[in-house]
Amino acid sequence: MPDIEDRIAALQDKSLLLLDDDQALRNRLGRALESRGFEVRSAASVAEALSALSSQPPAFAVLDMRLEDGNGLKVVEALRARRPEARTIMLTGYGAIATAVAAVKAGAVDYLSKPADADDVVKALLSEPGDSPEPPENPMSADRVRWEHIQRVFELCNHNVSETARRLGMHRRTLQRILAKRAPR
């Protein structure tokens, strides 16, 4: 990946804000982005991110969509107001077309689903307008996408199996068997 490394080295401002409430992901992705040449500041909440923006708005941002104290879109809008040329990527474990459209309308340049690979994040941050993204190297399997969707609905139903089964249109026992299994790869 020498082309990407050269492009990062040529940047005048390598500041990057990483916002995610998952500490393990934030640490892992932060280290990976630092090893590629970015100057990473991390935040675990919308409030922390807004505070970081007020002191020095970064040139780049990688933001989680759903956080305990709000929505990452609020941070995108605040960053666009302070630094319109900043390039922002939204990350989420709950991929949906409506949220992708909202993120792009708010000013994000791309929208990636978790778990996002650091190379995919860097490619998205440095992509030129009009570039079409390459297909992912290791896309989620259809079984994994289905499992993620079931988990999301289960979480939104406050872990109520009967309500989740009703909303998904499946039998409660079938859902219980799916929930008892490990996540597919």
Rank of each mutant, 00 (worst) to 15 (best):
P139M: 13
V104E: 07
E163I: 06
N138I: 07
L125P: 13
L168H: 12
P133Y: 00
P133M: 07
I150G: 02
E163V: 02
R173F: 08
S127G: 15
S162V: 06
R146F: 15
K105L: 04
C157F: 01
V145H: 04
E128L: 03
E155K: 11
S113K: 14
A103E: 09
H159M: 04
V121T: 13
A103N: 09
A118F: 00
I97R: 08
P133S: 08
P129H: 06
D117G: 10
S113E: 15
R173C: 00
N158Q: 12
K123M: 00
M170Q: 10
A108N: 11
P129E: 06
P129R: 12
A108R: 12
H171E: 07
S162T: 13
P129C: 12
P136K: 15
I150W: 04
A100Q: 08
R166P: 02
D110N: 08
W147P: 08
V121E: 09
K123G: 06
S132R: 14
V101G: 02
P139C: 12
S127W: 12
V122G: 14
R146W: 12
S113Q: 14
K123A: 06
A103Y: 10
G130N: 13
D117F: 11
N158G: 10
D110L: 03
P133A: 09
P139H: 06
S141G: 14
H171L: 04
E163D: 11
A108S: 15
G130L: 02
N160R: 05
G107V: 14
P133H: 02
N158R: 10
I97W: 03
K114T: 15
G130P: 07
K105N: 06
H149Y: 04
S132I: 03
P136Q: 05
E134D: 07
D143W: 03
S113A: 14
S127H: 15
L112N: 00
N160P: 07
K114P: 01
H159C: 02
L168Y: 08
V101A: 09
D131V: 03
V104K: 11
Q151C: 11
V104A: 04
W147G: 08
Y111V: 05
P129A: 11
K123V: 01
E134H: 10
R152T: 09
A116R: 00
P135T: 13
H171A: 01
E155V: 07
E155N: 07
L168K: 15
Y111F: 14
V109M: 09
D131L: 05
A103Q: 09
L126I: 06
A103I: 13
S113F: 14
R172F: 01
W147C: 01
D119L: 14
C157T: 11
E134W: 10
W147V: 01
C157D: 13
S113W: 01
P135Q: 10
V145T: 12
M140T: 02
G169P: 15
F154K: 04
V161W: 00
A98I: 11
V153E: 02
K114M: 14
L156T: 00
A116C: 09
Q151W: 02
A124F: 00
E128V: 04
A103L: 14
S162R: 13
D119P: 02
V161R: 05
R173E: 15
V145K: 12
A142F: 00
S162D: 08
K114E: 07
V161Q: 03
R144M: 06
K123E: 11
E155P: 00
V145S: 09
A102Y: 01
A106W: 08
P135R: 15
E163K: 15
G169S: 14
L112C: 06
A116Q: 08
S113P: 08
A124W: 04
K123C: 03
P133G: 05
